[in-house]
Amino acid sequence: MEAGIAAGKPPVILSVHSFTQAWKGVPRPWSAAVLWDKDPRLPLPLLKALHTIPGAEIGDNVPYSGQLKGDTLYRHATLRGLAHALVEVRQDLILAAEGQAEWGAHLARVLNDVLRAAPGLHRIEHHGSNTGACCGKDHDHG
């Protein structure tokens, strides 16, 4: 990460997790979701690209929020001004090898498209945080 920043090409940070298909007996309808805070550079193109997956219900900051002070993305990306997002995939869709291969292919295609087309991903930009925490010297506190 530091080498990329020093070389003038800051990395893009993506974290991939999974979530349960139900919580306390209530089904979760989303196939996948993007979690994010205030920096829209990666999340918005990711959301748009994920919506191209046939039959997939895509969530935005569900079933969890991407606004967590002190989490991995906050510490390694938000504070550094690196473009970032977290993708969550529903667990029942990736339990079997076929589902893992299918979602792996979806994510590879989507990420390839986004990384090629989205401008500004490899720049340091401080967007702040909805957590109320300060995230760098050049960001807006609003």
Rank of each mutant, 00 (worst) to 15 (best):
K38S: 11
G70I: 04
D37H: 04
L73R: 07
R80M: 09
L79D: 02
L73W: 05
R75A: 13
L42I: 08
K48E: 15
L47I: 04
W36E: 00
A77D: 07
Q91G: 07
G70L: 13
K69F: 13
L42G: 02
W30C: 08
L42Y: 12
L82V: 06
N61A: 05
R28N: 14
W36I: 00
I53R: 15
P54E: 14
K38N: 14
D92V: 05
I94G: 02
Q91C: 10
P40L: 01
D92L: 05
A83R: 09
R90T: 12
I53T: 11
D92W: 02
D39W: 10
D60M: 03
P63A: 03
G55P: 06
Q67E: 08
D39A: 12
L47T: 03
A49F: 03
V34T: 04
L79P: 01
V62Q: 14
T78N: 10
K69E: 15
L35P: 01
S65W: 02
V87G: 00
P43S: 06
V89R: 05
A32L: 09
G59A: 09
A56D: 04
S65T: 14
R28W: 07
I53F: 13
V87Y: 00
D92I: 08
R41G: 01
I53W: 05
D60N: 15
P45G: 10
Y64H: 10
H76C: 05
T52W: 01
L42E: 05
A85L: 11
V34R: 01
E57R: 12
A85R: 11
G59W: 01
